[in-house]
Amino acid sequence: LRLEVKLGQGCFGEVWMGTWNGTTRVAIKTLKPGTMSPEAFLQEAQVMKKLRHEKLVQLYAVVSEEPIYIVTEYMSKGSLLDFLKGETGKYLRLPQLVDMAAQIASGMAYVERMNYVHRDLRAANILVGENLVCKVADFGLARLIEDNEYTARQGAKFPIKWTAPEAALYGRFTIKSDVWSFGILLTELTTKGRVPYPGMVNREVLDQVERGYRMPCPPECPESLHDLMCQCWRKEPEERPTFEYLQAFL
């Protein structure tokens, strides 16, 4: 395994491009020591290896001592969030954005069929390849993070704006909380990567959403798509659509 080009840095580690087995181009995620327990990670990795779908980033291998390494397929255009905010983002029109959403829903419909939960679905965790191919990455890892700023769910590192209220408040993460996050991801797509709930801080978002506030229809977004977002944001988790439905609708 060779680490060649550093692609990015996040709160919990770095991402590199490299070569595996001398020939395969891969992405390598390294986790800061202390982010998660190697034992817990190894268990999760076994499950992650079983998830194989064309719209999920394929896991190739893991190094399960500290520092933990995760070796996955390489996606040339990086994260969907950076892609939307970058040069190419300007030229993306609604049909392409909807197609990308459908690809993500397709990957998540598979996660749904496998009775698995992602827990951290957002544009930053979707990767883009050639020809606007989108794949879901980092599934299941969020559960293992041991950082206090994260586990408190009120901490600075927790993605509260993407998280369903029952998950943020009571830790009830299910495929239905993933559906909520998918609704937020749809706003990221239609606004080219704007942060959700602009002008609001995490605490406010939690309070307002509890009181029934939902983001309005983004500019140039059809009402039918906003309606779909609002279905994803129904207060009762069981009233939210399935990913199978979302995939078919898109």
Rank of each mutant, 00 (worst) to 15 (best):
V5R: 15
K6L: 13
K6H: 15
K6N: 12
Q9R: 06
Q9A: 11
C11P: 00
F12Y: 03
G13S: 03
V15N: 01
G18S: 15
T19H: 11
T19S: 09
W20M: 13
N21M: 11
T24N: 13
A27G: 04
L31H: 05
L31I: 03
L31M: 07
P33D: 15
S37I: 04
E39C: 09
A45E: 03
K49T: 06
K50R: 10
K50C: 13
L51K: 00
E54C: 10
Q58F: 10
V62Q: 08
V63Q: 05
S64F: 05
E65Q: 10
P67I: 04
M75L: 05
M75T: 04
S76V: 12
F83D: 05
F83S: 08
G86Y: 06
G86S: 11
G86E: 10
E87L: 13
K90F: 14
P95L: 07
P95R: 08
D99N: 15
Q103L: 03
Q103A: 11
I104P: 00
I104C: 08
V111I: 08
E112V: 15
R113K: 11
V117K: 00
H118F: 04
R119V: 08
L127I: 07
G129Y: 06
E130M: 12
L132C: 07
K135R: 14
A137E: 02
D138L: 00
D138E: 00
G140K: 00
G140H: 02
L141A: 02
A142E: 00
R143E: 02
L144S: 13
E146R: 09
Y150N: 03
R153Q: 07
A156H: 04
A156I: 04
I160A: 07
W162G: 01
W162C: 02
T163H: 02
T163Y: 01
Y170R: 10
F173A: 04
T174D: 06
I175T: 15
S177L: 05
D178I: 00
S181M: 14
S181I: 01
F182S: 02
F182E: 01
F182A: 07
G183I: 00
L185F: 11
L186W: 05
T187P: 03
E188R: 02
T190S: 04
R194T: 10
R194L: 10
R194H: 08
V195L: 10
P196V: 11
M200S: 07
V201E: 13
R203S: 09
E210C: 09
E210P: 13
E210V: 08
R214L: 11
R214Q: 12
C217V: 10
P218R: 05
P218Y: 09
P219R: 12
E220R: 11
E220M: 09
C221I: 08
E223Y: 14
H226M: 10
H226W: 10
L228P: 05
M229N: 07
Q231I: 12
E236Q: 14
P237V: 13
P237C: 11
R240M: 00
R240W: 03
T242P: 15
T242I: 14
F243S: 10
Y245S: 13
Q247L: 09
